[in-house]
Amino acid sequence: MKNGILTFLAGAFFGAGLALSGMTDPLKVTAFLDIFGFWDPTLAFVMGGALLVFGGGYFFLRGTLKLPGNPGEKISSNLILGAVLFGVGWGLGGFCPGPAIANLGALRTEALIFVPAMALGMVVVQRIYRIDG
């Protein structure tokens, strides 16, 4: 029960952070990616803040709390192909998974289309490539 509340809180911090930072606004995201147009660097500040807290916290706490080790794997062709496809979709809609799901509560039409489509893409790739973990 206690873990459930903490997990809910963790998600709530994450969602609140997405909204506070403006990352739930698709135009704000595509504006970061639009480096040859009206570039908006806000997303870099978001990544900076997130990496500072997560990376710093992980570095200091991993020993005492026995946190999982470096999850890195070999750089595979699937990693590259997947990242390319993700980047293309990200640039098309201005949605990555977190902000799309965060917008479900506000019943935004774009999120209501995007999230089921994303689920479909995931189910298909998990079947084809037998992705388990």
Binding site: E73, L79, I80, L85, V115, A117, G121, M122, I131
Partner: peptide, 17 residues
Amino acid sequence: VYAIAGIVVGFGTRLGG
């Protein structure tokens, strides 16, 4: 565009880990 973007993001993120 959002339907296509969703499919591609779902496929790509799970393939790329």
